[in-house]
Every structure is written in structure tokens, then in C-alpha cells.
Amino acid sequence: MTKPFTLVQLRYFAAVAETQNMTEAAVRLNVTQSTLSSAIAQLEGEVGASLFVRMPRRGLRLTDAGRRLARELGPFLEEADRINALVAGEADALDGELRVGLFAPLAPFRAPVILSAFERSHPKVHVSFLEGDQQFVQRALAEGRCDVALMYDIGLEAGFTTHVVERVPPHVIVHAGHPLAAAADREVWLAELAAEPLILLDLPHTREYFLHLFRLAGIEPRIRHRATGYETVRAFVGKGHGYSVLNQRIHHQLTYVGDRIVPLTLADDLPSIAVVLVRPDGVRPTRRALAFEEVCLRLYGATRD
């Protein structure tokens, strides 16, 4: 039998699912918290399932049923908006909000470029980015808090569809006074740095990838410092505290404190890391998400399978 829940209830649910906070969602929707709470309770009654677990002083958490609804809701609400625009005689241009999950170290390299290109093609769509580590972004995708994500292909759990945007090989960075800095025009072997201290980019899955590179090269790295920030790693190297292995290349050689670092191409045959677009399996993507994917693939030279 058809359930008589309304579009308003579904939109309210989508806002609460994204924020996981009733007060914040009410402010965003410009309704009272009691109105919002009542609408969610009515929706739960209509679908016959609890959608949230209420956690005192910690907001809300989606139940399994809530996560399933959140994952499927984006395309449905987008289509409702499209039908409304067609009935009103408006052009069928993309609009609304697109939520993109983003692996934090990729953000400064990719987000501004992608956003500029996307806004030129789809100026009516408002894009918001949700940054975090690999696990955080996967969880946000699974819970429906973002529509698509851009991340690395490491540490991905089952249940996601991926498409490679670009493959980025590893390289070494040293400080400007390092003896190998003069070799910037040639390839160097990782073994040439084996006896020196390493500054490790220490993020979940990222560190495992880098340490795997050393194992492939038959080297036991001498880790001197661990840092979770990309620029922190570069700053340590710039001050001469050690060398590092990274993937994303910056178009200038200065650190935040003004020291110069020198990137070196590796001669070792080591695996690249893939930048991938990620969506949950079995969930129909929104037109906005597909448009975002097309922009990413166009920018970085990849094509759809």
C-alpha cells in the first residue's frame, strides 16, 4: 500500500540526516525545532521504522533504515525539483546543492580547480565539500551525507563503485641544500636516501602505502618525524630535518615558512596512487553528481568506462 509521506517530510529528513543535529537542521530549514521533530516522527510512523537513534548531548545517529533512505533520497528529490521546474516552464538546468566528500590532503590541490570548472558549466548548483580522512569520507558516503567523493583508492571498503580520475606516481622531496638537490634533472633511487631520516606523512592508509613503497625497494626507512599535514611534512623537509616521499606535486618549491624544497623523480619502479571518484554501490546517482564526475574526468584527462 502506498505510504502517504510528503516531500516536505523527506526534505526535512535529508537535512537532519546531513547535519545529524535537529537544532542545526531546523536553522537551515528556517523552521522551529518542534515542527521538524514532529515531521520526522510522522515520517518514521509512515515508513514503519526508526530513522534515527537519539543520543543525549550527542545529537542523532542514522539507523540502518535511515542510512538506506538517505542513500536513495538524493536522486528522488532532484527529480522532484526537475519536474516542478518543467511544470513551471523553467529551463531544465541543473540547480540545487551538491555535497562532495573529499580526502583532506587532496583538497588544496583539486577542490579549487574543480569548483571553478564546475561553476562555469553549472552556475546554479551550490557545491559544498566535506573533508576528512579516508574512513570519514567513506562513512559520509554510506550515510548519504555526500553524493559523490574524490579520494585515493587505498583503504576502500566493499560496497563502493570507483572510477579512476588520475594516477599520481610517488616522488621524493629534499631541502635546497641537500646534495641530491642538484640532481633535480635526473631520476634518483630511493636507496640513495636510505640512511637518512624520513619525514612520514602519517595518515591512515596513506602511511601504509608509503611504507609499502619502501618494502618494495628493499629498504627499512629511518622515520624521524611523523606528521598528518602535507604542508607540515614539506616544512620539516625544508628545514633540513629529513626527506620525504609524497605523491601530489606542488607547482612551487616554497614551504609556508619560506624555505625551498626540491622534488626529485624516482627511478624505482613503484606503484602510483589512483585518485578516484567514489559512489555507494546500487545507488542511482543524481544528475548533479554525474555532472561533477564529468567535470573531473574532463579536467584530468580520464574517460568514463
Results as ranks from 00 to 15, higher is better:
residue 2 T to I: 11
residue 2 T to S: 09
residue 4 P to M: 01
residue 8 V to A: 12
residue 16 V to T: 09
residue 24 E to A: 15
residue 25 A to D: 01
residue 27 V to P: 01
residue 29 L to I: 13
residue 30 N to A: 14
residue 33 Q to H: 14
residue 35 T to C: 02
residue 35 T to R: 02
residue 39 A to H: 05
residue 40 I to N: 02
residue 46 E to W: 15
residue 48 G to Y: 12
residue 49 A to G: 07
residue 50 S to G: 03
residue 61 R to T: 15
residue 63 T to D: 12
residue 66 G to Q: 10
residue 73 L to I: 10
residue 79 E to T: 14
residue 80 A to D: 00
residue 84 N to F: 12
residue 93 A to R: 00
residue 101 G to Y: 00
residue 101 G to W: 02
residue 102 L to D: 01
residue 106 L to V: 13
residue 106 L to N: 06
residue 109 F to C: 02
residue 110 R to A: 08
residue 112 P to K: 10
residue 116 S to E: 15
residue 124 K to T: 15
residue 125 V to Y: 00
residue 130 L to W: 10
residue 133 D to E: 12
residue 140 A to I: 09
residue 140 A to Q: 12
residue 143 E to F: 07
residue 144 G to L: 06
residue 145 R to P: 05
residue 146 C to K: 09
residue 148 V to S: 05
residue 150 L to H: 06
residue 154 I to M: 09
residue 158 A to K: 08
residue 159 G to L: 01
residue 161 T to N: 07
residue 162 T to H: 03
residue 163 H to A: 13
residue 169 P to F: 06
residue 176 A to R: 13
residue 177 G to H: 08
residue 183 A to H: 12
residue 187 E to Y: 00
residue 189 W to A: 02
residue 191 A to G: 14
residue 194 A to G: 13
residue 195 A to I: 10
residue 197 P to M: 12
residue 197 P to K: 12
residue 199 I to S: 08
residue 201 L to I: 10
residue 201 L to V: 09
residue 202 D to A: 15
residue 203 L to R: 04
residue 205 H to V: 09
residue 207 R to V: 01
residue 211 L to V: 05
residue 213 L to I: 08
residue 220 E to A: 11
residue 222 R to E: 06
residue 224 R to Y: 06
residue 226 R to A: 07
residue 226 R to I: 01
residue 227 A to P: 00
residue 237 V to E: 00
residue 248 Q to L: 14
residue 257 V to S: 08
residue 258 G to P: 14
residue 266 L to I: 10
residue 269 D to K: 13
residue 280 P to E: 04
residue 285 P to S: 02
residue 290 L to D: 05
residue 295 V to Q: 01
residue 302 A to D: 00
residue 303 T to P: 01
residue 305 D to E: 07
